[in-house]
Computed example of a mutant assay.
Amino acid sequence: MTTFDDRERAFETKFARDEEVAFRITARRNRLLGQWAATLMKLTPAETDAYAKAVVQADFEEAGDEDVVRKLLGDLTAAGVDVDDAAVRRALEEQTVEARRQLIQPE
Rank of each mutant, 00 (worst) to 15 (best):
K14F: 11
F11M: 11
Q57Y: 09
A54H: 12
A22R: 15
E66L: 05
M41W: 03
R7V: 08
L73T: 04
W36A: 05
V56Y: 01
Q35W: 00
G74I: 05
D84C: 09
A16S: 14
A50Y: 00
A91M: 10
T13R: 15
K71F: 04
Q35N: 10
R28P: 03
A91N: 07
E94P: 02
K53H: 12
A10T: 11
R101L: 12
V21Q: 14
L32E: 05
G34I: 07
E61P: 02
V88C: 03
E61R: 13
G34P: 07
R31V: 07
L33Y: 03
E98R: 15
A86I: 10
E61K: 12
T77L: 02
L32I: 07
K42M: 06
A10F: 13
V68K: 02
L32Y: 06
T44D: 09
K53D: 15
Q105R: 13
A78N: 12
R70I: 02
A37Y: 04
A86W: 08
F11L: 15
L76I: 03
L33F: 01
V88T: 04
R7G: 09
F60E: 13
A91K: 08
A52F: 08
L76V: 02
I25C: 08
N30C: 03
G34C: 07
E47F: 00
V68G: 02
F11R: 14
V56C: 03
R101Y: 09
K14Y: 11
L72A: 04
E61Q: 13
L72I: 05
F11G: 00
P106I: 10
E20P: 02
A46M: 02
R28H: 07
T26Y: 01
L103D: 11
F4G: 00
R17Y: 10
G34H: 05
Q105H: 15
E66R: 07
L103F: 11
R90H: 12
Q102N: 08
I25A: 10
R31P: 01
D49C: 00
E94R: 13
V21K: 14
A50Q: 10
V56Q: 08
R9Y: 11
A46E: 14
A22V: 06
A22M: 06
F60Y: 12
R31N: 07
T44R: 06
E98I: 10
V97N: 08
M1C: 09
T26I: 01
T96S: 12
A58V: 06
K71R: 15
K42P: 01
V69C: 02
D75H: 04
A87L: 09
T2M: 09
W36S: 03
